[in-house]
């Protein structure tokens, strides 16, 4: 299977099952598109007629093109077969080994963002902070259940984790104290709304946190409309300067500005560009996930505009690359040379298998998006998993368990999509969130267009 598309003046062929990307001229684009449907003689006649006014398209050129296509097919780089399906199930069986925890150190927040999937940070339950003892037990649980894996990850999450900052710092120290004897390396990360960021937080994070995620939605009016205090007052002015200081202190590396876009800003490219103009270099925005009845919920009628925004953003990034003052966008960061292995691509984020969320009182859920939904309560960090039946649903979750994904060119990039989004939109973790798929495919097209442009123009991504 191939996916052929045109964007920004480039003719692009994505070979679905090999991961190869080909940039081609107009005539070759047509030839490859017809290659599996017509005979060579039919293709040749069609191309000669279509390009009769183009002196660069000769019968000899077309024959050479056929030869190039055949060589690529023989090399497994074009029209490659899908040889992974039979081994997908056994890949997944190997994944009952834990390697990452989302540590909910605070169920509570100093903001009351209107779109918060966690119900203003409280996950539709009582407020609470994780105790140091519970946190230590969570790290022990991770070590005990991580098998031979050496690299372990812990994200301090909430609510707002900085409401429980002293415990976070002590847990980092505890994790470090266990590294040598357990033979593990901890990678700690933090997700924050920024209100409590100060010199202590910045200094500690720069020393100990492999990544920090800083929540900013873009332009002031966009951010303040939904990221506000219980009083309704916006938070943009209070966090922006702190975030700038934080990002600069990290030398503009190993952090993400992370925004959410909604029906209120279907022109979200302007919000990303605003963050770039503030000096931030590592950017990301995500579509809001919420009930369709919310006034800010994205709707089907927004889809065309949203796709255009991804192209506008990619073109702006390309302009800035040419000037040497680019920025990165999370969804456009694809590694065409040394990307993830096929196992990772088939099995995705590891929800409910390699990755679990821990609540302040030590309960275990498949991931942060399921916390608070009792149907997905797996057990706790003292007694382990009690609901193997729930885990089984996630264990069986891979791109080959979604029949809708079978012929999708993006399946080895999206890995079947987000199980939580699938559950919330279809009622099944093995469902397919079609709205999300449409956006994902567009992002992949844009990301690969940028790769093609960089290759064709010999551009380096410098920032």
């Amino acid at each position: 299977m191939i996916h052929a598309y045109k964007m920004n003046g480039y003719n692009i062929i994505i070979d679905q099952n090999s991961g190869c990307v080909h940039s081609v001229d107009e005539a070759t684009f047509d030839i490859i598109n017809l290659y599996k449907e017509k005979s060579k003689d039919e293709i040749k006649a069609y191309i000669i007629e279509k390009y009769k006014d183009d002196p660069e398209v000769t019968p000899e050129d077309i024959d050479t093109c056929f030869g190039d296509i055949e060589a690529l097919i023989a090399d497994g780089r074009l029209f490659a077969e899908d040889t992974f399906e039979q081994t997908a199930a056994q890949f997944k069986k190997k994944q009952g080994v834990l390697k990452a925890l989302c540590l909910h150190v605070a169920h509570g927040c100093n903001l009351a963002c209107k779109y918060c999937f966690a119900g203003k940070g409280e996950y539709f339950g009582p407020k609470g902070l994780m105790s140091l003892e519970t946190g230590k037990r969570a790290l022990d649980f991770l070590i005990e259940n991580s098998g031979t894996r050496k690299n372990l990850e812990v994200d301090f999450f909430g609510g707002e984790p900085l409401l429980n900052w002293e415990v976070c710092k002590k847990l980092v120290a505890y994790g470090r104290s266990r590294e040598k004897e357990s033979g593990k390396n901890f990678r700690f990360t933090l997700t924050t709304n920024g209100l409590l960021v100060d010199d202590d937080v910045i200094e500690f994070c720069n020393k100990e946190m492999g990544n920090v995620v800083l929540s900013l939605d873009g332009r002031k009016e966009t951010h303040d409309r939904l990221r506000c205090f219980p009083s309704g007052k916006g938070s943009y002015d209070l966090v922006t300067e702190k975030f700038k200081r934080f990002a600069d202190a990290r030398n503009q590396r190993d952090y993400y500005m992370r925004g959410t876009y909604t029906h209120y800003n279907t022109d979200f490219a302007a919000d990303v560009i605003h963050m770039a103009d503030l000096g931030f270099k590592e950017l990301s925005v995500e579509p809001v996930v919420c009930s369709g009845t919310e006034p800010y919920a994205l709707r089907q009628s927004d889809l065309t505009a949203l796709k255009e925004q991804y192209e506008i953003l990619a073109n702006e990034m390309l302009k800035r690359y040419r000037k040497g003052n680019g920025f990165t966008f999370y969804h456009y960061m694809i590694d065409l040379e040394a990307g993830p292995c096929i196992v990772k691509r088939i099995s995705g984020c590891g929800v409910g298998t390699e990755y679990l969320a821990v609540t302040p009182n030590g309960e275990l859920y498949p991931c942060h998006q399921f916390v608070g939904d009792e149907k997905f309560l797996l057990g706790d960090i003292w007694n382990g998993i009690r609901r193997a039946d729930i885990l089984k649903q996630f264990n069986e979750c891979n791109i080959y368990s979604h029949k809708e994904c079978k012929d999708c060119f993006a399946k080895l990039y999206c890995s079947g999509g987000c199980a939580a989004n699938a559950y919330h939109s279809t009622g099944s973790v093995n469902g397919v969130y079609e709205f999300g798929c449409e956006l994902y495919k567009k992002r992949i097209e844009c990301a690969i267009m940028l790769k093609v442009a960089q290759a064709e123009e010999n551009l380096k991504v410098e920032y």
Binding site: H22, T64, C65, F91, Q95, L336
Partner: peptide
């Protein structure tokens, strides 16, 4: 005419 081809578990990668 111009094909330009751009390119040709251990569990340790990031989640």
């Amino acid at each position: 005419m111009k094909i330009n081809t751009l390119n040709s578990g251990c569990g340790e990668c990031q989640t």
